[in-house]
């Protein structure tokens, strides 16, 4: 009797089986990676703001310290976006008539807050505390990147939990001395692990991986 399947069916079946495994594995890998990709996390994507505030100009150009504007970073959980008054401290005098700064002036004059787009946005079920991180030697630029080279703000990390855990599980990889926390030009030394381990001991940094550390 005639065969139902052509001999080529054997080859096709093998290729299909192999291809299925490759397809499942590769699509799994793609989904896995895409979840971390800058497409999803919006890393390196310059975010448009109502006023195109340039950290590059203000930090690198004018030498402002992070804490001049983000005043509560050392004191509280939230680092804070400066009130309009902080902008007007300088811009009532400098570039006082510039059309680019009209939204700032009108905010101040009309007592209407400026609505900034939140660039470093953790999910609402994450309770992050800035002050303890600064206290333990985590620098601003460690997480926020080279802010002094950003004409518009973008994230340089995924801000996903696995990234947080990377440091929480081994803080010695990223710590820096407390005096250097606010320096934008800080480069980790060659012996970061040795330095980090020493800091972990000196600053009594615990490797906090309990869920309630961040989730409550």
């Amino acid at each position: 009797m005639s065969q139902t399947f052509h001999p080529s069916a054997n080859g096709i079946a093998r290729i299909m089986l192999f291809g299925l495994i490759v397809l499942v594995a590769s699509s799994g890998y793609l989904i896995y990676q895409s979840g971390r990709s800058p497409y999803v996390t919006r890393a390196f994507e310059a975010r448009q703001q109502p006023i195109q505030f340039s950290h590059e100009r203000h930090v690198a150009g004018n030498g402002l310290d992070c804490r001049y504007c983000h005043t509560s970073a050392e004191a509280a959980a939230v680092a804070g976006i400066p009130p309009t008054k902080t902008c007007m401290n300088c811009h009532s005098q400098i570039h006082a008539g510039s059309p680019y700064l009209e939204p700032v002036r009108s905010s101040y004059a009309n007592d209407v807050s400026i609505e900034w787009v939140k660039v470093h946005d953790l999910p609402d079920f994450v309770y992050f505390d800035h002050s303890i991180h600064l206290n333990k030697g985590v620098g601003c630029t460690t997480c926020h990147g080279q802010v002094d080279r950003m004409p518009l703000m973008w994230t340089v990390k995924s801000l996903q939990m696995e990234w947080c855990l990377d440091c929480h599980r081994a803080p010695e990889k990223y710590l820096r001395p407390r005096e250097a926390v606010f320096r934008v030009d800080y480069q980790p030394p060659a012996d970061q692990l040795a330095l980090g381990s020493r800091l972990v001991r000196d600053y009594q940094v615990k490797s906090l991986t309990s869920c309630s550390t961040c989730h409550r």
Partner: peptide, 11 residues
């Protein structure tokens, strides 16, 4: 994640 805004004080 949907975009959120931060609304600081004016003063």
């Amino acid at each position: 994640q949907p975009a959120e805004v931060i609304v600081p004080y004016v003063r």
